[in-house]
């Protein structure tokens, strides 16, 4: 087994190839891909393509194929989510980071598949594509982080050839840490975990469903091919009817 974590795009990115072996080169390529995505899409880098677009230094005809693809995905997600997901900022600029993560993980997973790997996962800040099986030949065992305690999990699911993503809404409540008022903002959603056909589907719907607040889980329940688990600020989880099929008891 080969596993490595690097900090790219401000988050830990882990790649694990279960069969190990000749995976080192594939892994380096996949990490290199994340670096390239960061250079192009970071709104915090003045010389990124997205920064050039937002500064008006790049006309729409001159944008890259990658940027076009991401913008098209963002628009698709905006429509799919009834307008809840939107990369347009009030000042008119664009910030596609809400979709770039899942998109980049999916593409990195494609690179590994093209290199012949079958059993691996790619995890960018908790958005994961899991293919094949783990070192023990089991479907990948994926924990769901306790949104209130980073080092705990509140459950786990078995995944193979699927994606999972969790969107957090720590910024929705006014008091995100206030032990004296633990019952504050009871209706606020603190995390939304989505299992989808791939990590991109999971990511874009996790972001959108999280933005919908408590209604998000019903939106996921109604959307084919997705299962989800939502946790609110009171520490209550709500899961879609098909989520249990993935759970490890």
């Amino acid at each position: 087994m080969l596993q490595e974590t690097r900090l790219i795009m401000g988050m830990p990115i882990t790649i694990c190839i279960a069969e190990g072996g000749a995976g080192a080169r594939s892994m380096a390529e996949a990490f290199g891909y994340f670096d390239a995505v960061d250079r192009r899409f970071s709104t915090y880098k003045a010389d990124s393509e997205i920064s050039a677009m937002n500064a008006g230094r790049l006309c729409r005809d001159a944008i890259s194929a990658e940027m076009r693809e991401v913008l098209a995905l963002a628009e698709k997600t905006r429509v799919d989510s009834d307008g809840y997901f939107d990369i347009r900022r009030p000042d008119g600029s664009l910030d596609p980071s809400g979709i770039v993560k899942g998109w980049a993980v999916r593409n990195a997973a494609d690179l590994l598949r093209e290199a012949g790997h079958r059993d691996f996962f790619v995890d960018a800040g908790g958005d994961i594509q899991a293919d094949g099986v783990n070192e023990d030949g089991e479907e990948w065992r994926t924990g769901i982080r306790n949104p209130f305690a980073e080092d705990e999990i509140i459950g786990a699911v078995r995944l193979s050839n699927r994606g999972i993503a969790t969107s957090g809404n720590y910024a929705r409540g006014r008091h995100i840490y206030n032990p004296r008022q633990p019952g504050d903002e009871l209706d606020d959603i603190v995390s939304m975990t989505i299992i989808g056909a791939d990590v991109l589907e999971a990511d874009r719907f996790a972001t959108a469903a999280c933005a919908m607040g408590a209604d998000g889980i019903y939106f996921i329940e109604e959307t084919a091919g997705l299962e989800g688990l939502m946790v609110n600020a009171a520490g209550i989880s709500t899961q879609t009817s098909g989520f249990g099929a993935f759970e490890i008891q």
Binding site: M9, G10, F121, G125, R141, T142, G143, I144, N146, S167
Partner: peptide, 12 residues
């Protein structure tokens, strides 16, 4: 529960 990895909202 023993797991290979964890999905969570990283506060990135």
């Amino acid at each position: 529960i023993r797991v290979n990895m964890v999905s969570g909202a990283t506060l990135t």
